[in-house]
Amino acid sequence: MNGTNNLSLMRAIRGPVMMITIGTLFALDHMSAFSFSRTWPVILIVIGLMKLLERAFPAPAQS
């Protein structure tokens, strides 16, 4: 039960975390030299980290 809950938590925060990431990158683009064309790999890293975290919680046993 706990594993399921953790997993669904990870899935649920995926969207918000992406949103914050994208927002931060655009903010950097607008007000610093870090233009979006340079910082986009951060999105890859964040997606990878989120996936990795999801893996850290075992998928619940299913029928």
Binding site: L9, R11, A12, G15, V17, M19, I20, G23, T24, L25
Partner: peptide
């Protein structure tokens, strides 16, 4: 972009609060 960040933070806090209080979580944040 800060609107986006704020929005994401609001959703994140919301989900964490739901999680902490044991409420069901949405499939997607």
């Amino acid at each position: 972009p800060f609107l986006l960040i704020g929005w994401g933070v609001v959703r994140l806090i919301e989900i964490l609060v739901w999680y902490a209080t044991g409420k069901p979580l949405p499939g997607r944040g």
